[in-house]
């Protein structure tokens, strides 16, 4: 396991949007934009069980997440690794992330949405332009 490092941590802890890439069942890359936070050396994001990225991670836990500084796009961090997935029936993480990014709890889930917590354990951390 790699260490996240202070430079990468700062980019993930700020209110920056991250792009997460997972693998489709045929191995094709699939990317989407997520809210993120860090805990120890892990990067965490929230999704729901009906999303493609959740389904992809069930097939193959390998993922990469990239975050950049909007004020200086040449400054960015990429974390590659494998994920663990945990059910989040109380929507704890999505509300925490929503408060971080918008200042309020999350209200966009349809009834019955099944929230999960995705944690990426870094295998490789790349920081550019710091």
């Amino acid at each position: 396991m790699a260490q996240l490092g202070d430079n990468a941590r700062k980019l993930f802890d700020a209110k920056n949007f991250a792009t997460v890439t997972t693998l489709q069942p045929d191995g094709t890359p699939h990317s989407s934009v997520v809210w993120v936070k860090t805990e120890d050396d892990e990067v965490h994001f929230s999704t729901t069980k009906d999303r493609r990225k959740y389904q992809n991670l069930q097939y193959d836990p390998r993922a990469t997440v990239l975050v950049f500084d909007p004020a200086d796009p040449y400054h960015y961090a990429e974390v590659r690794g494998e994920v663990t997935v945990e059910d989040d029936p109380q929507s704890v993480l999505i509300n925490e992330l929503s408060r971080k990014y918008t200042g309020a709890d999350y209200t966009n889930d349809p009834p019955g949405a099944q929230r999960v917590i995705i944690r990426i354990t870094p295998r490789k951390v790349v920081v550019r332009g710091d």
């Binding site: 890439t21 997972t22 990317s31 390998r62 993922a63 990469t64 950049f68 040449y74």
Partner: peptide, 17 residues
């Protein structure tokens, strides 16, 4: 800026700007 994801030799994803 665009984020581009490609596949490493082991099939895992890699991204850059």
């Amino acid at each position: 800026f665009a984020f581009v994801a490609t596949l490493q030799p082991d099939g895992s994803p890699q991204t850059s700007i």
